[in-house]
Design a protein around this nucleic acid. Structure first.
Lengths: 305, 305
DNA sequence: GTAATAGTGTCTGTTAGACAGTATTAG
DNA sequence: CTAATACTGTCTAACAGACACTATTAC
């Protein structure tokens, strides 16, 4: 194999040479992080006869400048040249929410060529979960007009299959609706999954978006589904409750995430090994108090999934 | 909220202005893809009395230039400014292996500040699976000295827990060994998982590496574990067999990936809904022939995980 | 006592895991 | 027939899902 001139140098010389002549040969994209931060909030109910329901909420920031001025976007920001993406996320999270060391898991890297009209931006998205109780009050940052928690609702509006030969094409139309007080933003997402042999390819398209900036509707939906998947076989939900919690409360967290009611017995069996009885109780009304539990740090899930 | 001067422009004007003055204000990293391409190869056994065993293999490229000259690295390359990462991966895969449209799933984005001595490089890694039968013969590319398939072996050498208060610290020492004929490269990886309350943080460190370039040992281990996890609840393994296959063969693919033997009855029950009987048979020896199956495109897994 | 919510005992149907059997082939 | 591998019937233990029951509290 032929060696190029550069390769006859020592490694040290090569790197010096490279940094002078090769490093900026090609145009580079910018790297940002996008954070999908979820929390569970207890709905404020004036009617005392009704039980307060929990809600899954998501932090959005109203854009103060172009592009998508006035629309709502995920928190995030540029990665510094001297930090890695994980550090950038934790730094941004602290700047945006004031909380340190929250759960943040890397999700996916978004790189569509035109996802930002300003320039080429590749964004690494993170799923973050914070306990509402630990949060200080929100305040808008420099380049934001407003910051708010939005209640998340999504539903599959329509879904159908088409078959042609051995190819199956499944189309799903999904509606995402985010509400914060009088403000509602929404998007309609079309997901087409084509299965040909064992090969499955998924294409996602936002067909309508109202008040949501960039490709953030798609990122939010992706995070939501990942969160739902992980709830069942990891301890991820425990990041959304305080240090001590009751099982009815924990069950409600699961129910809100999954969007369906769970059977009490089965739920308790499911989390049995993940919790430890603190011996304390919580009295909240004219009925039997709940036991308070804490997370069992010794719990391990048997299988990597 | 105060508006900056830039923000008094129309969106179109803003973007033009931005691209002239703001776009390159900060130093940017380069973006590359790293591909962990697995295949299943049937071991060549000269002794005809022994049954041929399958092996999990992985494609590595010997570096022709600095840094890590002579070491083995994952295939990959720079993302062009006019393509997204998925396109870059498929392009590189075709260049490296000659195969079009293989299964490739985005895994994780690696961004440690010093992962490349030349400059700041953020790399999006992909897990790719190819069927050995479809592969044309390998040939080394421009900047590579050699390209080879390496048999993958990993094992947990040691593992222990330390508890201090409510914090549990689990340390695992993992050895990764890649062999191709007379060549063996290896790495020792130490993974420390600290659980504090519900919060679990994992730190991975390569403590020894011999013949493997960059942080690729860590990426390979990560991919291997993801592959193992996904085998159980997705159709991912079908990308490693041909269009038609026998159940004993498919079972061996599962066994090689998981690194343990599976029960035949249970395995067959597990894949029952994922396969279709073709009505054909495969004769390979002086015994009962196996039925040939193909993938059942109508299969859907119930749960997103 | 009642109303409301917390928590448990137990039945049932499904799935995972293992064993021992039968089936089919070449020679 | 034998040896070798493919495939199946069936037992058992574990788990998921549902229902009905008991327990504890404020009033």
């Amino acid at each position: 194999m032929e060696e190029r001139d550069l390769q006859n140098l020592s490694e040290k010389e090569f790197i010096e040479q490279y940094q002078q002549t090769e490093k900026d040969k090609y145009e580079k994209p910018s790297i940002t992080t996008d954070m999908v931060i979820f929390t569970i909030d207890t709905e404020k109910v004036s009617d005392k006869r009704k039980k307060a329901e929990k809600e899954l909420q998501l932090l959005l920031i109203q854009r103060g400048g172009h592009p998508y001025k006035g629309d709502w976007a995920l928190a995030g920001g540029f990665m510094g040249i001297d930090e890695d993406v994980d550090t950038a996320v934790q730094r941004e999270l602290k700047e945006e929410t004031g909380v340190d060391g929250v759960y943040a898991e890397q999700l996916y890297t978004w790189s569509a060529v035109n996802r930002d009209p300003r320039m080429r931006i590749v964004s690494v998205s993170y799923l973050a979960l914070v306990d509402q109780e630990k949060l200080p009050p929100l305040r808008a940052g420099d380049d934001a007009d407003d910051v708010r928690w939005f209640t998340v609702k999504d539903r599959v509006v329509d879904s159908w299959d088409e078959q042609s030969g051995s190819t199956i094409r499944r189309t799903e139309e999904i509606e995402l609706e985010l509400t914060s007080g009088e403000i509602t933003v929404s998007a309609t997402i079309e997901r087409v999954t084509v299965t040909e042999g064992a090969n499955t390819k998924t294409a996602v398209k936002v067909t309508k978006q109202d008040g949501i900036a960039f490709d953030h509707a798609e990122i939010i939906l992706y995070s939501l589904e990942r969160l739902r998947g992980k709830v069942n076989y990891t301890n991820i939900a425990f990041n959304l409750v305080g240090e001590e919690f009751t099982l009815p409360d924990l069950q409600q967290v699961y129910e809100v995430i999954l969007g369906r009611n769970l059977n009490k017995v089965q739920f308790r069996r499911h989390v049995e090994d993940m919790v430890l009885d603190t011996g304390r109780e919580l009295r909240t009304g004219a009925y039997r108090p709940s036991k308070l539990y804490k997370y069992n740090a010794a719990w391990v899930h048997n299988q990597l999934k």
